[in-house]
Amino acid sequence: MQNTKTLLHGAVAVLFVAAFAVAGVRGIAIRQKAVPRIDGTGADCCTDAVLKLHFGVPRGTRLITSHADALPHGKALVILYPANDQDAYLASQVVGSALWPRAVLASPVEPGALPRGLFSIPGVGGLIFCDLSPPKNLPGLETVMPGLTLLRLEPKP
């Protein structure tokens, strides 16, 4: 009788662990898609992976900094992203951190309603449109990667 009880307890424990493991493995498989796979090694590999997940382009940090280097140093940049878009907000923050120690401001805007004053803010050397379509036919527009466009507000030195 005692043996049967022990066996029963053992079987229940094994079933419990198996159910826990199956539910866990299924959840892990779902959640693994939410975090990017690392792509290479180096100082910025995680930032690159997050940028790749959002913009679909590898080595994003180098692309962003090389484009920004062409802008006048000592001038701030402003990143514009669509209001009420959490993903775009996070992407703009990562782009801003990739440009550090350069001064970068970020501002949400309503798509299709860019205030004219944006193009003449004193001390700002360029605008970065993150997940936003910039006004067409503007001089100084450069596509850094799909979804990220840079607008030079001053001529190259």
């Binding site: 975090v35 796979r37 690392i38 792509d39 995680c46 997050v50 120690p101």
Partner: peptide, 24 residues
């Protein structure tokens, strides 16, 4: 799993970014 996965948003923005600032 740890070898293959990257740090995520807050890991980079809220914590690692500050580590860089402290280092530099």
């Amino acid at each position: 799993m740890a070898c293959g996965s990257s740090m995520a948003w807050d890991g980079l923005l809220a914590w690692e970014f500050k580590a860089r600032m402290v280092y530099f």
